[in-house]
Structures are given as C-alpha cells and as structure tokens.
Design a protein around this nucleic acid. Sequence first.
DNA 1: TCTCGCACGTG
DNA 2: GCACGTGCGAG
Length: 429
Amino acid sequence: MDDIKVILQDKELWRMFHEAGTEMIVTKAGRRLFPSYKVKVSGLDPKTKYILLVDIVPADDHRYKFSDNKWVVAGKAEPAIPGRLYVHPDSPATGDHWTRQVVSFQKLKLTNNHLDPFGHIILNSMHKFQPRLHIVKGDENDGFGQQGGAFCTHVFPETAFISVTSYQNHRITQLKIENNPFAKGFRGGDEGELHEPHPLGKHLLRLASCHGPPDPRLPSDHCHSHGTDSATLQRRHLPDELVRPRRSTALPNHYPRHRDYNRARELGCKRSYSDTSPPCGLEGDCHRPSPSYESLLMSQPYRGEALCSPEASMSGWSKGEAEGSEPFSLLAQVAYLPYGSHLAREAVPTAAPAPPPHGQAAAWGDQPPNLPLSSNQGTWERSVHHPLYHREVLSPPRPCLDLVPFPSQNSPYQCHVTLGAIVPHWAES
DNA sequence: TCTCGCACGTG
DNA sequence: GCACGTGCGAG
C-alpha cells in the first residue's frame, strides 16, 4: 500500500471553494457534492482487486453559524449520526481498472434525513466535515478478510466543508453557479455582454472583496495553498460578479409535469422504499446505496449487495465470501475512524514539511505551518499489525463528540495504515 | 433554519 | 423524450 498515490482532481476548483469556505447543501432527498470528489490513483497492483470508498467524518465537535459574513462557532456539535460509506460502484475492481482513469465519486449524495432509506451519507446541517478516501486491498484470493484487508486512507483538507440547507456565503453560491453545469441557468450572459446587475449585485460585489479570513478561532483544517497563482484566481472571479437578474418565472414550463412531479422527484420517490430490487444494473446507473453502519454490523440486507457488484459475483467475489464478516468489519472500522483520531496518535510523517504559504489562502480553516504543501504525496506510515477480528470492531462507534478534531501541526495529508492499526483506539475509547 | 415547488439547465 | 441536478424564493 506504500506505493499508492492519490491525486485530487479539480484541485484548483476545490481550492477556490476552500478559500471562500466550502458549503455543501444537504437535503432530504440527497444532494451531490460540488465540486465532485474525483481522484487519480496510481501505484496499485494491476491485478489485485481493491475497493474504493469514501466516508465523511466530522471535522470537529462544533456547530457553526454564518454571522457577519463569516463562519463562527455556535456551540457544541449535535450528536454524531451513524456514519455511512459510499462504496464506489465499480468496487471491487483491479488496480489496473482504478488507475486507468479518474475515479469519480460524483454520485455520492448528502442528506440531512436521519432516516434516509437511500443509502446517502447523512450529515447534520451547520457542521463541518471532512471527506476521506479509503482504498481497501484484497488478498491473493480477492478476499478482504484477515489475510488481506490492508487499506490506506487519503485526506484532502481542501475538500472539507460545512453542511448547509441553503447557502450562507454568497461567494460560494457564485462559485457553484459559475462552475456547476447544472446551475448554468443562473449564470450571466456571454462574455463581454453588458449584464444587468443581479438583485444582489451590490451585495455580491461587496462580498467579493471581503470574503477574507473567517473567525480565527475556527479550527485549522489544513488548507494547503501550494503555490497557486492566486492573482489568476482573482482575475477569474471578479468579472463574473455581475450577473443577469433571476430568470423570469413568467415563462411557461416547457415540459408539463404533474403537480407533484418535482416533489416526488426531489424526495427520490421514483423507487419506493419497499422496492427491494437491486438498485444496480437495470437502470444502467450503478448507484449503490452504501451500507449503513447498522447494516454492516447487524447483517442487514445491504450485506452481500453493497460489496457484491455483478463483476464481483462473476469473478470469484462470491456472495458467500462477501457475506463473511471480513469486508464489513473492515469497512465498519474504516467508517468510524474519525478523521485524525488515529493519525494524531500513530501516524509518523515521512515527508519533509514545506514552508507555509502566506496571504489570502490562509483564509477559511487554513493549513497550519509545517505541513507539506505538495499535498498528497507526503506519506505517513504506520504498520502495526493486529488481528482483524478484534473484539472492539463490533463495539458501537464511539460518539464523534470526543473525536480528535483536525489534527494539529504534524498531521498528515495522507496516511497509510494497515488493518488493525486502528483497533487499539477503539479499545482505548 | 428548513422545506417545497419551480424554472431551467445537463446528460 | 425524459430523468434528474441546480439555485431561487416563498412560506
């Protein structure tokens, strides 16, 4: 696992959002991340099979509010919700498969519905979170049990975000509209066209010049602003601050819809909850609900399906094997390893720190000094081998309230951990 | 703060 | 043609 390298795609875009303070909408029906979480992976063994999955863990134990155009702590975090994993739909697949193209988690969705039946990742609004990528390696038999099961975790601090039900910072709204193709309808006209100011135009212009540092009391989340031409970013943003007025609502909807069409769609009711047919396959859209923590532990129906893609069943990843506890206990561990909890105590940096950046990039939850700026190439390793089936694996996850927040100065961007290294922490808690 | 229906985009 | 991803704004 030591040779595995992961590069975040659209890093510049992520950085732009990060500098403004990334917000992600959470809805009852589930909302995608934007920017999407996409990575380029290298260093995998071409023939070995891997599972790639993402989880999103609390970044700290605060609740936030947006006040005076900045995020400030507004109290203690709500009790953490049982975490869910988003297993990449291609999983399991060979190293060759994963490294051949960019791996996209764009179908991952966030919800604030604690009873979400769709397998989306459940988050509390107005809390700060950190997505993490986990790469789980199969053994020589493509199993993910005691013999195999090594995994590594990759964290890109610039992907941290605060969950919201509606955008708080207008700068974020603008960045979303400017960059998300699905929001094109809210963009201004052609380049050079004289735009009417947006009703919020003045406000936006004002914000554009003051979306500076947030409350310095915010915990660091290690923004790494490594040598980006921030002047270029500024030039890109400012002309776009003027946009057209909101599109007219007087225009008839060009597609007649049932009154409740959008409502049903927004709630994701295309498939009824009672529909137990596999979500993967027939629709061609292989979104697979992530197994909930409960299902992982309690052998609920997700078992055997979540990890068992058509490819799996045809290639020796038999369902029986998947139904064994190996992958699930493993994934349960991965899912509930709070960001920084094991890193802070066990990770050993092996990459030379680079000097910190200065200037505006030090805005929202910035990287503290002494962190490597070239990001995910830095590797911290810990090779502590423990039996996979440690009793603590089946213990309930500890509440995330007591997790270690963003790791402090010596924390890694990327951590390679072998299975079991995290188990003692469960025992400790 | 959050939900809902909507217009208007993409794929 | 149509499913579905967006932000908006009323409530």
